[in-house]
Structure formats: structure tokens, C-alpha cells
Design a protein around this nucleic acid. Structure first.
Lengths: 156, 156
DNA sequence: GCAAAGGTACTCGGATATCGGCTGTCCGAGTCTGTTGGG
DNA sequence: CCCAACAGACTCGGACAGCCGATATCCGAGTACCTTTGC
């Protein structure tokens, strides 16, 4: 099992957009050049973040993407759910109700296996929800300064 | 992102094998009939569990699969790792080091985003490691009795 | 000087191609059990 | 009665096909800013 690359891209883009706050919207072309990523596919992923209300997108010349709210109010869970669809890892197909093993059984309560997997999944989601983009920005303070410098250079 | 169905199959098989302890090895044909699952593919998944030391497989006539250790010592993490490869959800591709955004940067420490994702993933793994097959067996006590009855009927 | 027209840069959404992994099936080889036949 | 040979049941490992989702690209349409043109 594996998360899509779009999660890494989206998180890095959110952090960078946080650092570039105040510079106006950042075009997808610049963001793709920023991380050397395929422009068209990165656009698709950021559009998903915009649909989820995490980014704002302004069309037209000098348009682009920006954070829709302050980075303290964007959790990693928000980003992951927007990019991965928010579905659960484990989908219970209720195989306990099928086949010869189910003969004569009553299935009142929920499947214990599904409940156990859900517990683990909730722990994951809780941990993701406890961390925000602002935390990630604070993780490497020197980078904010460099981001502004590099963005000015890229602007040409 | 989604776990393979094999995880659900493997967990249900482990619980059932726990209930049928003492009946000798259970053949893949019976297990497939037990849950109405494709026999050949289920075999592949159980072979993976055997390679991981969770199940024992005895060849020959009247052979089959059985738990390799008492169910209290088989965690959900063991089963998931054996069936899903134990790789991490999030693989950091170090895109922070690529493109125009990386100009003039030094990347001493680990990537903060990777560290944050790893924290969440560890919470998931910890939760899975805290639950055993024995816990799942205890979840529906009436089922153990029924399992033995149905297994005797299936035996013919 | 000012307003209208056009060009440019950008996003949005859909359509399409490609690739890898999960699902599922099949087959040959090896191993153990139970039976059968000869001494 | 005993031992050897055989048949059956089962696992192991590899090879292979089909399908779906992730990745990647392209195009037409819409929108905002900027420049040019005409008065």
C-alpha cells in the first residue's frame, strides 16, 4: 500500500505557498519549475486542493494558486483527504457472512476485524489532523527567507 | 489509498484457524469454501503468511495451514506487514532538493514533511501492533463453537 | 486623453494514453498419507 | 505378516492474463490583465 506522489507534492506546495504569502498568487508554471515536477499533472492535484477549499485559484493573467486560509488552520489530514479521496484503507467486504463458515450464524454486531482496522486508521488520521502546514513551515525557518529570494529570481 | 483484500482474508483466516486449533492443518480448499473465496489466490496470500512465520504449512495428504504460534502472539501488524510488504505509505522522493526552489539550500536534517507523515504512520502501526488475533477471537465468543460445528460438517 | 478591441497568461474541465500493481488462474514439481500387491 | 510400490491429496513456486487506478499529456473554454487602436 502506498500514498500517491501527489501527497508529497501537495504538502510541499502548501508549505511553499505559505512562505510566499503576500507575493500574490503563484502560477502553476512557477510551482512546477520550483520542484521540477510535471506541470500538467501537478496542476490536476492542486485543482483538487482548490476544490477542497485548501487553496484558492485566481484565473487570468498574473493568476495562480494561494493558500485559502492561514497555514495554522490547514492540517495534514485536510491535504491528504483532498488528494486521496478520504476513503478508508480497509474496506470490510463482510466475507464472514459468505460461504460454509457462515452457516447458522447471526451477524448482529459490526465485524470485529473491521473495527480493529478502523481503530488503527483513526489513530493515523488523528495524528495527521494534529499537525498543520504552519508546523511544517516552522520546521525549517531558514527556508522561508531562501524561498522569497529564489522566487524573486524565478520571477523573471 | 487502499489495503488489498488479502488483508481481510488473511485476518479472517487467522481467526478461524485459531478457533479450529487442535483440528490439525486446514487445507486451502476448505478455507476457500469457508469464506467463498477464490482458492488459488487465497493460497498465494496464505503462502505469504507462512513465509512470514505466521502460519505453518504442512504438505502432503491431510496437510494444510495452521497458526504457527498462539494467537496472543500474532498481532494485526504482523499480518498486515506480511501481506502488504511492510513498506511505508509515504515515500519521500526529496523533491525539496530539486528544481529552482532548492537553489542555495543545504539539506542537513531530514525532510520535515517526511517526518510528519512517518509520525502518523507509526501511530497506525502502533495501534495495529497492540491488537492480536486472540483479541479478535474473543470479540465474538459464540463463533468459536459454531466454527467447530461447521468445520465438522464441511469435513465430509 | 479615453474607451473599446484584441492579445497574452493563466485556470478549469474533459478526453486520452501509458504504466504498474492487484487480482485471478494455471501448471509442473515436491511431499506426505493411505492403499495395494508380492513375498 | 511385512515391506515395497503406487495413487491420491495437498503445498510450493513460477508464469501468465485481465483489470483498475495512478501517472502523465493534450486540448478547448473561460477569465483577468495588458497593450494597442481609434476617436
Amino acid at each position: 500500500m502506498r500514498l500517491g506522489e501527489g501527497v508529497e507534492w501537495g504538502l510541499h506546495c502548501c508549505v511553499t505557498l505559505g512562505w510566499l504569502e503576500g507575493e500574490g498568487p503563484v502560477s502553476i508554471r512557477r510551482l512546477a519549475a520550483w520542484f521540477d515536477l510535471p506541470q500538467e499533472y501537478l496542476k490536476k492535484r492542486l485543482q483538487a486542493l482548490a476544490r477542497a477549499g485548501i487553496l484558492t485559484s485566481t484565473p487570468g493573467a498574473r493568476g495562480g494558486f494561494a493558500l485559502a486560509r492561514p497555514p495554522e488552520r490547514i492540517t495534514l489530514m485536510d491535504v491528504v483527504a483532498a488528494l486521496e479521496g478520504g476513503e478508508e484503507f480497509f474496506r470490510c467486504e463482510e466475507i464472514r457472512q459468505r460461504g460454509a463458515g457462515a452457516v447458522g450464524a447471526r451477524f448482529d454486531g459490526p465485524c470485529g476485524i473491521a473495527a480493529a482496522m478502523r481503530r488503527a486508521e483513526l489513530a493515523w488520521r488523528r495524528e495527521l489532523a494534529a499537525q498543520t502546514v504552519a508546523d511544517l513551515m516552522a520546521g525549517s525557518p531558514a527556508s522561508a527567507e531562501r524561498a522569497r529570494r529564489n522566487y524573486a529570481r524565478l520571477g523573471g
